[in-house]
Amino acid sequence: MNIKGIDVSQWQGEINFNKVKSGGVDFVILRGGYGKYISQKDPYFDKNYSHAKKAGLNVGVYWFSYAESETDAKEEARVCLEVIKNKKFEYPVYFDLEEQTQFDKGKAFCSSLVKCFCGELEKAGYFTGLYISSAPLKKYITKEVAERYALWIAEYGSRCTYRGSYGMWQYSCKGKINGISNDVDMDTSYVDYPDIIKNGGFNGYKKH
């Protein structure tokens, strides 16, 4: 199963999601925001969500972390929950971990941030995941955490070299998609997340 997707934020500007959909894209992961303050919500998030849904795309979310402690990660989760409430998502809510200052604190620290953020989201009924590049995933995330949450791995090139199991691969940041005026990240999903999430009653859906 190779499902075509993209991920977007305010940096893509105005998007024609009908053209995106007609170009063969099945899903889009939207940036909800970053950090631990509601003012850091992505200014295009609500508009992107509404227009992507109307176009018939499956939707997920990512939240960019600057957490310097477990407390920060929980605060980021709290703000993320505020931003995404009353919406439905067919793809996971991803914790986006890529700051070098976080990696510098080591494997136990990075893994604890993931568990804190994702744990708060799970309590609220969300299906969660981790977005991270391949190299830091191998170095700074414990096997337990890597196997516990849905993995979305960034590694640009012809293949992903991570040997563990993962659900999504971001393979380019230079994609050209009809309906988007500048470069966009390109993704492939290998898992039927909409089926898992809807049937499991996650992300705003009622369990079947």
Rank of each mutant, 00 (worst) to 15 (best):
V8P: 03
S69V: 02
F64T: 01
V83N: 08
A108M: 10
R159D: 07
Y37D: 15
V184I: 08
Q102V: 01
Q10M: 11
K105S: 05
Y62G: 06
K207H: 08
Y190R: 04
T101R: 07
Y91A: 12
Y140M: 05
S158M: 01
G24M: 09
S22T: 15
V28C: 08
S189R: 03
N182C: 06
E147Y: 05
K115F: 10
K19Y: 01
Q10E: 08
F103I: 11
E14H: 13
G200W: 03
G204M: 03
I141E: 09
V83M: 03
V79M: 06
Y34Q: 00
E68C: 05
K87W: 07
E99W: 04
N48P: 07
R78E: 06
N86P: 05
S65N: 05
Y162D: 03
K88R: 15
K21C: 15
Y149N: 13
Y91E: 03
D46M: 12
P92D: 02
D187G: 12
I197N: 00
Y140P: 05
S9L: 05
I153P: 09
W63H: 07
G60Q: 06
K123S: 09
K123H: 04
I141R: 14
E120A: 12
I180V: 00
Q170L: 05
L130E: 04
P43N: 14
K87L: 13
G125Q: 01
L57C: 14
M168P: 09
D185Q: 13
V114L: 15
N178A: 10
A135Q: 08
K206M: 10
S111K: 15
A55H: 14
G175V: 00
F127V: 01
G129S: 12
C80W: 00
F127I: 06
Q40M: 04
H51A: 07
P136A: 14
P92K: 02
A55E: 14
M1Y: 03
K115S: 11
I197G: 01
Y34M: 00
V20C: 11
P136I: 14
A77Q: 00
E90H: 11
Q40I: 07
Y131Q: 06
K207F: 00
M186S: 12
G5N: 11
S158I: 02
N16P: 03
G56Q: 15
D96F: 00
L81S: 08
K139W: 07
S165E: 13
G23Y: 05
Y49H: 13
G175D: 00
V61G: 05
N48W: 12
V79R: 05
E75Y: 01
K143Y: 08
D104R: 05
F109L: 12
Y162L: 06
F202P: 02
F103A: 04
V114Y: 08
C173N: 15
Y44Q: 04
S22W: 14
G56F: 15
T128D: 07
K88I: 09
T101W: 13
N18Y: 14
K53T: 13
F103S: 13
F109A: 12
H51M: 10
L137I: 11
G167S: 06
G129A: 12
Q12D: 03
Y166P: 06
G24D: 04
Y166M: 11
E70I: 00
